[in-house]
């Protein structure tokens, strides 16, 4: 009888550890990332979803996709806890946390051709673009304030930050080209230029 009691007392920590492994055990791998470079493409938003295009686009449905790649640069190590058992994970528990080391501080759109009477070639036309989210539009400055510095929780490797800039003011039909300038908090600047695009009625 005494032997059973001793065995039970010894087993308590092990049982608690197994229980915590099953219910709470969710180790998160944490990384730091930096913004790396910029890709831009013309967008056709006339359908259900915006798609990258190289053909002509209706001027009411034109946009630019910015793809700012990100690179995980360092893993942040956690002190391992004392455990007797292997952690058991649910499938939705496999998650990596990515913390930004730098942040996007500004996004600027410059027209390389005459956009309208007030905006000649080389003019800043950022105010004509908004970021499209489902059911809402956000000004570029507001978007940068909200999402310029992100902590991401992902199930796989880190992905590029994709932003759809939608042209909200329709220009006259014609050929257009835009340059994108993205400023990073550590002083770096990324630039990308769209291919020439024919905006039609």
């Amino acid at each position: 009888m005494k032997f059973r009691k001793v065995l039970l007392v010894l087993a308590v920590p092990f049982l608690l550890d197994v229980a915590s492994s099953c219910s709470m055990g969710c180790d998160v791998e944490t990384y730091q990332y930096v913004h790396k470079d910029l890709q831009v493409a013309n967008l056709d938003n006339s359908g259900a979803k915006a798609v990258v295009t190289s053909g002509e686009v209706k001027r009411s449905a034109y946009g630019i996709r910015l793809s700012i790649s990100r690179d995980a640069i360092a893993a942040i190590l956690h002190e391992p806890g004392l455990s007797f058992s292997t952690k058991l994970y649910a499938s939705d528990c496999i998650e990596n946390e990515y913390i930004a080391k730098d942040s996007i501080t500004s996004i600027k759109v410059v027209s390389l051709v005459n956009f309208d009477e007030e905006h000649g070639a080389g003019s800043d036309v950022s105010d004509y673009f908004k970021v499209g989210l489902t059911g809402a539009f956000t000004a570029l400055d507001d978007y940068v304030n909200m999402y310029g510095h992100q902590t991401l929780n992902l199930n796989g490797p880190i992905q590029a930050h994709e932003i759809n800039l939608l042209l909200m003011t329709q220009p006259e039909p014609g050929t257009y080209q835009f340059k994108l300038e993205v400023t990073i908090s550590d002083g770096r600047n990324f630039e990308g230029t769209t291919n020439e695009i024919e905006l039609v009625e």
Binding site: N45, S46, G47, A48, K58, S60, A61, G63, K130, G132, T134, G135, A136, F137, L166, L167, M168
Partner: peptide, 13 residues
């Protein structure tokens, strides 16, 4: 329901 307009950026909720 959110509807997106054809040939436009417009959304209607």
């Amino acid at each position: 329901v959110v509807l997106k307009e054809k040939d436009s950026h417009e959304f209607y909720t």
